[in-house]
């Protein structure tokens, strides 16, 4: 992918919507161990809505539509965080109809920063923020042809790195011991999203 435009964004969202639908049961089960077990529903409904949204040519406005569509159908905290990430991308991309692949790491970093600020979350607490951070760092300066593989590898490595460590954010922190043995559902969801986006 040399450049990103509204049509390519829509195609990626459609792939993620399919991937999220396929992973919904797995994510619900992972979330059910630590929370209320609806993460798969949140993610699949959210991306389905984003994939169906009418995306304007301005990439900023296109990301804004994604944010609103996601927010509309899933107002849980994970849904709000994803919507926040889209909103940050929207602000960075406002006024451009195409973005060079080299600009994508900055979008991911902007999303990470906004999500950290909104969720009042810190890195290292075993949450989706760690996955985003790893991803932003892995694709920074990467060859555009390699970016997708780098992102998937970073998301996978994050799950690996946090094995045995307790969740310190969100509801899962109340099950510190149990959460150490399990994958963080948010990190797992992120991996499935990235896998689908670059497939």
């Amino acid at each position: 992918m040399a450049t990103l435009d509204s049509a390519r964004l829509k195609a990626a969202l459609q792939r993620v919507a399919e991937g999220a639908a396929a992973a919904a049961a797995e994510l619900n089960a992972a979330d059910g161990q630590l929370g209320d077990g609806d993460l798969g529903i949140t993610v699949s409904k959210g991306f389905a809505a984003a994939a169906e949204a009418d995306l304007p040519d301005d990439l900023g406005m296109a990301f804004l539509e994604c944010s609103k569509a996601f927010q509309r159908v899933s107002s849980s905290s994970y849904g709000t965080l994803v919507a926040t990430g889209f909103m940050a991308a929207a602000k960075s991309a406002k006024g451009s109809e195409t973005l060079d692949a080299s600009a994508i790491p900055a979008l991911v970093a902007a999303a990470r920063d906004a999500m950290m600020a909104r969720g009042k979350g810190e890195l290292g607490a075993k949450s989706v923020l760690d996955s985003l951070d790893a991803c932003a760092k892995a694709i920074e300066g990467a060859d555009p042809a390699e970016m997708g593989d780098e992102a998937v590898a970073a998301a996978r490595q994050t799950l690996q790195d946090f094995k045995g460590r307790p969740c310190k954010l969100g509801r899962a922190r109340m099950f510190a011991e149990k959460s150490a043995e399990l994958d963080d559902p948010g990190q797992l969801a992120f991996l499935r999203i990235v896998e689908a986006a670059v497939s």
Binding site: Q71, S77, T84
Partner: peptide, 10 residues
């Protein structure tokens, strides 16, 4: 707070 901040950005 999360939602009102988001609304402000919208």
């Amino acid at each position: 707070v999360m939602n009102f901040d988001m609304a402000g950005e919208m």
